[in-house]
Design a protein around this nucleic acid. Structure first.
Lengths: 247, 247
DNA sequence: ACAAAAGTGTTAGGCCTACACCCATGA
DNA sequence: TCATGGGTGTAGGCCTAACACTTTTGT
């Protein structure tokens, strides 16, 4: 309580006189980046989107998309911008999950990173593969990663497992219309468990957040799987009362 | 992938020649702070620790303890240091829960803050009240707060509610030895629900993470409440198998 | 013809919830 | 003596988990 906060800061000055170091502060500031762990799902396995670094440090290594934050954008906006610049993925809803602040996590200078994750349906992505250096990896074939990105990845997986119990985030990984078995595969992949098929079906339908897609009518031979759609309306209703997804 | 990351940064230079703006960068950097939302519990109500700001901006307003990060410390270390400097609380285990990055959240310059929370037993604190400006508030009498600290507070409460379902964090809010009713009050206060006393007792004891403190022996009249202690060993055992605290 | 995917119900056991009485203490 | 806190058990209902067979399609 002896020190006051505002003594420690002062507005930066842009002098720009011959020097490239135009942004000056009374006290040292770290650089801030935003990174994105993008999860996808192909109906069977969870995938993660990585880019291969073209420059040092860690040139040639794989890393999560991300980059330095501008002064007029939030970390989330930065994450989305970098994601689009580096992978061509647009309009992805990313969510912050942890900020990594180890002093030596970047060899160049002090850099802290606000890590985000997002879930995307692989079917939506395949077309817009803008960046040759971007590639999807299954969870069991992830290469060695740059910086502390392995740490970031482990944390992302942990958070994903926890969060899926409170929000039906899994549906963002699926196409709009999907089979029950795909949904089950997804939950099994994320939580690393196996469910009984019939029990899973009962549990999910009892929640009431799925709608059957009526398309098979009477014609098509039975044994064509029933397709479902996530019912956001019913979910909102349920959520307002307070509930838990139990798995 | 068109731009490379390292083009954007360069080591800061300390020129120190007459100017107070000694730390210079090629690109602008935000300032970074760490803030602490400290929860306490007096056996009945949850409390939060605030400090009154002595200087502008927001002079006289209440705020969470926190301050600017040094270049040789992590956000967590910063949070603990500032907490001790401003409130005298030492050796508190803080945990990061969200990073606030709104562009205008600080009127002075661009500042992002890594927000942390901690749970402390009020009985341990009362002695070391180092800072006159620090004060505990019940949740229903929290004053108007500086900066975006009301937002930070709402997020802290939300995260606390979620996290208490995965980790027995509540025990850090209690003295080492406590009554079952205190534990129940705590869970009720955090989750904003009421439990049946007997059902709560059954649920908790079935988890097996409490030990009875054997002190009442045969002598003391019965009807002295049984005291319990958190059994970290059994908890660790349970956790390794994967489990959920269900409330 | 075989394997793989998908649709469909029942049962037993465990867990959750709701609920009431008695005793001791302190005001 | 009255209010408060605290200890204790049971019954009913709901949910969960375990479990098998049949049909269809594609290889």
């Amino acid at each position: 309580m002896k020190e006051t906060l505002s003594e420690k800061v002062q507005k930066p000055t842009a002098n720009g006189q011959g020097s490239e170091l135009k942004y000056c502060y009374k006290y040292p500031h770290p650089a801030v980046t935003a990174d994105c762990v993008i999860f996808g799902f192909d109906g069977i396995n969870i995938k993660v989107l990585l880019i291969q670094r073209g420059i040092d440090p860690y040139k040639g290594k794989w890393a999560f998309p991300g980059g330095f934050m501008n002064m007029d954008e939030t970390a989330e906006q930065c994450a989305r911008r970098e994601l689009e610049e580096e992978t061509g993925l647009k309009d992805v809803t990313v969510e912050q999950f942890y900020t990594f602040t180890d002093v030596k996590r970047d060899p160049r200078e002090r850099v802290i990173t606000v890590a985000h994750y997002a879930l995307v349906s692989l079917s939506e992505v395949k077309g817009g593969d803008d960046a040759e250096e971007a590639q999807w990896f299954s969870l069991d074939e992830i290469p060695s990663l740059a910086f502390d990105h392995e740490l970031i990845f482990r944390k992302a997986l942990k958070v994903l497992k926890e969060r899926i119990c409170f929000e039906p985030i899994g549906f963002e990984l699926l196409p709009e219309v999907f089979k029950m078995s795909e949904l089950q595969n997804l939950y099994e992949a994320i939580l690393e468990v196996k469910f009984d098929r019939r029990n899973f079906y009962n549990k999910i339908t009892k929640l009431g957040i799925l709608s059957e897609v009526e398309e098979r009518a009477k014609d098509a031979s039975r044994r064509v799987p029933i397709m479902y759609r996530f019912n956001a309306e019913k979910y909102a209703e349920l959520k307002s009362k307070g509930f838990r997804l139990e798995f």
